[in-house]
Design a protein around this nucleic acid. Structure first.
Lengths: 340, 340
DNA sequence: GACTGGCACTCCGGCCAGTTGAGTGCCAGA
DNA sequence: TCTGGCACTCAACTGGCCGGAGTGCCAGTC
């Protein structure tokens, strides 16, 4: 027996009802709420079938049905009717994001916005260094033997490092060091910098070599080895609304949130800006997120992806709404970045 | 009848037991666990007295006693024996913080560390702009009519803003603009910059005035009006451990955490680095934090205070341990900042 | 006057049994 | 293939009962 039209319709109804009410849904209430033009008994047969196939299950005998991870998956893939945001919502998003004054502000606003729109926990990755290119490098003398290196990327990220020099350098020397590194590195994608950095030594006079050597080391660390990726999150309050089963679900989601590595992995696997990923329960790699679902996508100016963003919540989540919100927000952040 | 020695001892015992067990403590268990050399009946009399005075209360008749906010207050002021951290712990703190590569890293490490040490939610304010002074200002040309302004403060914070210019400027012009603003502003405390900024216009040639005017506006916004203070927090998982009463306590604490303003207010009121504040339950201004306690202090290099940090948790908190941890961490962060 | 032992009392929490109601599975018939 | 009917299951609620932890009070002792 195949999964015919009505069975799918029943599954959709179950998912939608369960997401709305958080309670197992039975055959009778189902025919009442949706206008399925058959009797509860018929629905029961369909439900039995859906249960055999693993799309829904009963918390206990003689209770209503609840979608399984597999059921949500089918729903997301074939049944969810995406609810596009209203024009008003879109305008609000746009206006809110455009008010940002710097990158930090953009990220903060984005994450707050996403949490508010979806009533879930939102996660936003800062534009990844490895996907950026160098816009400017600045050297600020602190002492005679100590510089602060400031790197500004085209995505607006600013990184700073201290550099200890083996010997004192004059202000003029600092200027020429700065000119050299800017000349060689500006415009480089961060992944391409190692070769460029190697060549730096040959560009300066003999007496600046030791200083340049220290600089190169720090540059290598900053630009290449330490892919310091950062994430921001917001909306944890929503967990108290959604994850009533606190001790378990709540705890493990919070734990996952505090592990930046886990978050980055979640967001890092997106490649094209249009690719939106939904990971449901078991599909998540992280042990702690087996009870949760993640809707994520990449974002960036134009067609390039510089980072990921998404929402995170109990598997019992309004997927169509979450998907619409994540898509829309990603697009508008991209626009804002393109302008900045 | 005054609050004599034994009554205080009883209060301390109640607080310590309740913090340890999370259960109302009765007269019998009390004499057993602590070696009070009197009978339960005597303790009961003392308890009745303490209850009359408002230091403890019963959740319901015929239950054990639980400290009130007033009881915790007395405990903190007169009874808590501070538990200094072990030498090993101190070394661990120091080593961990010294591994930080930049300011962001320092703040992140600090907040994680504090959360771990106290098993509470930790909050750390970024070094406040209003308490910093300008170390360097950089102008990076993006287009002909668009600059990026980067400000570096002595506390290591880096702020960036876009500046739209009314007309195109050459690279040389940018250099001279940069020189002028650096000359006038470097070393200024951020609170003193407005007057310095006013003088900027007179320092440049006629044709650069419009550009300088745009710059001044942004500078004013950045340095003065927008006291953009930032905070980081960590350890929300600990709430699931401590605040068993989730729906209420947990929710309101999480809500407070998401409101940066509330957090900043919490941390912002500390003036001297040695002043450590404990706010218990009702003593908190924020409605959401009436169920919580906050232990906070200022931190900064040497004797100056550049920001605040602290922990946040249910009133039923191990105050002596929290106080010791907050103090120690504040001191070590100060040291790290002084070196950086 | 301070402490103690004894006693009656209160109230929470756990346990048990009974009832209700939502929901199911199955079957015979249209 | 759908439907109505029927018997069955089980969680959730209710009320009653009991035990235990804890209290307040009082009379007696040091």
């Amino acid at each position: 027996m195949p999964l015919d039209g009505r069975k799918l319709e029943v599954l959709r109804a179950i998912v939608e009802d369960y997401v709305a009410t958080h309670e197992p849904v039975g055959s009778k209430t189902l025919v009442e709420r949706h206008q399925l033009r058959v009797s509860p008994a018929t629905i029961r047969n369909d439900m039995a079938f859906l249960e055999d196939e693993g799309y829904i299950k009963q918390p206990h005998t003689s209770a209503g049905r609840v979608p399984t991870d597999k059921g949500y998956r089918l729903f997301v893939d074939r049944l969810g009717r995406i609810k596009p945001l209203s024009a008003a919502e879109r305008r609000a998003i746009q206006r809110f994001l455009e008010g940002a004054v710097d990158l930090d502000d953009v990220v903060h606003r984005t994450v707050k916005l996403l949490a508010q729109l979806t009533r879930q926990v939102a996660v936003v990755q800062y534009p990844s260094l490895s996907r950026s290119s160098v816009r400017h490098l600045e050297l600020v003398p602190l002492h005679q033997t100590r510089l602060m290196l400031v790197m500004i990327t085209d995505t607006g990220r600013v990184e700073q490092r201290l550099v200890e020099l083996p010997a004192a350098v004059s202000d003029d020397d600092v200027v020429s060091l700065r000119n050299v590194i800017n000349e060689k590195l500006v415009g480089c994608r961060l992944t391409d910098t190692p070769t460029a950095i190697e060549g730096l030594l040959d560009e300066v006079h003999q007496e600046l070599r030791p200083a340049m050597r220290s600089l190169s080391t720090v540059l290598l660390e900053t630009l290449v080895e330490r892919h310091e990726e950062r994430v921001a999150f917001a909306g944890t309050v929503n967990l108290t609304r959604n994850a009533i089963d606190l001790s378990g679900t709540m705890r493990s989601i919070l734990e996952a949130l505090e592990e930046e590595v886990v978050l980055l992995k979640l967001l890092g696997e997106v490649d094209s800006p249009t690719a939106l990923r939904v990971r449901i329960g078991d599909e998540n790699e992280s042990e702690n997120l087996r009870v949760a679902s993640v809707v994520s996508t990449g974002y960036g100016p134009g067609a390039t992806v510089v980072g990921g963003l998404g929402v995170l919540g109990p598997t019992r989540m309004d997927y169509p709404a979450a998907i619409a919100a994540v898509r829309a927000v990603a697009r508008y952040v991209g626009d804002v970045l393109a302008q900045g």
